[in-house]
Amino acid sequence: MGPFDLSAEIGQIGAWTIYLLVGFAFGFILESAGFGDSRLLAAQFYWRDLTVLKVMFTAILVAAVLIFWSTAIGWLDYDYVWVNPTYLWPGIVGGLIMGVGFIFGGFCPGTSLVGASTLKLDAIWFVAGSAVGILSFGETVALFDDFWHSSNLGRLTLQAWLELPTGMVVFGLVAIGIVVLWVGDIVRRRIYGDSSEH
């Protein structure tokens, strides 16, 4: 039953290989979808190109359905699955700041790596900028340490918060996602005509 203690099962080198392969597939898929191109990424925020929304939501929901079917039939132990702890306000404030960074910079950390790997100069400048941002955080976090550790709701899942069964939450998200993307596409074509492809 997954997950596995990789370094215990296949050794340290084996574990690192798996992570390399996973990263490789991640980078390959992202670049193939166009995520190395800042113009494509930014177009999302003008509703001109919905690739970002489509890829992200599809990925999250396909993964969720697969994950929760695996836990349902005993392939995966949800107790051992890493669920990001919810630090509500640092997450929201950080998210807003990242949104600003996204529309100014045209990338997010993962996609900037993809862009940099194909020698996009703007991506390389972005990575340099994020280095400065990360270092500044390390130096300044002590000033607002209390905030950074605030609103820790722990391992809070949507199903626990909404007090609904897991399956219902997943189904609801899938239904909402399908509607949003379908309608979103119609809106996009209405604004920009059929010349925009995605």
């Binding site: 359905v65 929760f68 079917w69 349902a72 399956g167 997943v170 998200l173 399908i178």
Partner: peptide, 17 residues
Amino acid sequence: ATVLLLASAGLVWHGQP
């Protein structure tokens, strides 16, 4: 989309262990 919707509906029916 249909497959995904059906699969998630299946989750509602099957439930978690």
